[in-house]
Amino acid sequence: MTEHFFEPAQAYETVSGRILLRTMHNVRDRARDLVERRPRGAHAATRKPRDLRIQAKDWIHEHDTPANRTGALGVAATVVIAGLVGGAAGSAEPELQLERQAVVASLSAEAAAATPAAPESGTGPAAPAAQAGPAGGGTEAVSVPVPQGPVAPLDDAPVTSPFGYRENPLAPGALEFHTGTDFGAGTGTPVKASAAGTVVEAGWHTTGGGGLRIVIDHGDGLQTTYNHLNSIDVGVGQTVEAGQVIAGVGSTGNSTGPHLHFEVLRHGAYEDPMGWL
């Protein structure tokens, strides 16, 4: 096996080639000497192996200098040393095989130590720590209240009469200004508050034709009214939430059939409810 390494090396008349050739001869002779001196019999397993690893490392440190170092010399020296030791000690006891493994492992460890460690895959700059809350607590999300409303006062109810001028259903041929939007629904259909607020009126509409009526004040001059009710489920001064059931559809007051007359007032002026919902 070793003859294949010596023949090409003799063809190069360079300092590195001559050093490598001389070193290969020395290592081969040293390995043969170790095999020939190996004790026979019962003492073979207890023989202390010669420290070939230290000799190989010393040679690398002595000759692998910036003046003579080449990439080929460094790699070839490691491969040749490992091959020669393995070929000469192939028939020796297990301690020679352990010696060869120790040489290769030591040289590999030194090469790895000289190489800067690459960052581990998937690692990067540390994520910034979450800022603590104003109370010095953890990172709990602060819940932001969602404005309630507006919601439709009836579920899936068709518009039967829009906001604005129309013919008075109780006086055919006469125009009137319709102050709200009518939603057609059966008697008792649940009526819901369109937004959170306070009930300021709940009872019979004494100054108009709204029949049973509820008025809710939402603040900032905004009010909603619910008219022609069949039943009322809230009282004056009661606080309600958006979507809360407050009454049932009816046909009380000036009405030709069950429906909800829904109004929106801002600072006392009527607005189109469909533009607010």
Rank of each mutant, 00 (worst) to 15 (best):
G86Q: 13
R53G: 01
A129Y: 13
E62A: 14
D51I: 04
A111R: 07
Q55W: 10
A102Y: 00
P94T: 10
K48T: 14
A129M: 07
S121M: 13
D64L: 12
D51S: 10
A56E: 06
R53P: 00
P128W: 10
D64C: 02
D64P: 00
I60P: 00
A44H: 03
I81N: 03
Q97H: 15
T70E: 07
P119G: 05
E62Q: 14
A118N: 07
V80W: 06
K57S: 08
A72G: 06
A102W: 00
I54P: 00
R69A: 08
A102E: 02
A126W: 11
A76W: 06
G90Y: 15
G124A: 14
H63M: 04
Q55E: 09
Q101K: 13
A67L: 11
L98Y: 01
V80R: 05
S106I: 00
P94C: 07
E93K: 14
A127D: 04
A129N: 04
A76V: 02
A92W: 08
Q55D: 07
L52T: 08
T115H: 01
K48Y: 00
P116S: 11
E120W: 05
Q97G: 15
G90S: 13
L73S: 04
G86T: 13
V103C: 12
R100K: 14
A89N: 03
W59D: 01
N68H: 09
H63P: 00
T65A: 01
H61M: 04
T70A: 03
T46E: 04
A82K: 07
P66I: 02
E62D: 13
G90K: 15
T46A: 06
P49Y: 02
V79D: 07
A126Y: 12
I54H: 06
H61S: 03
G86I: 04
K48L: 09
L107M: 08
G83L: 05
P119R: 11
I81F: 11
A113F: 07
S106Y: 12
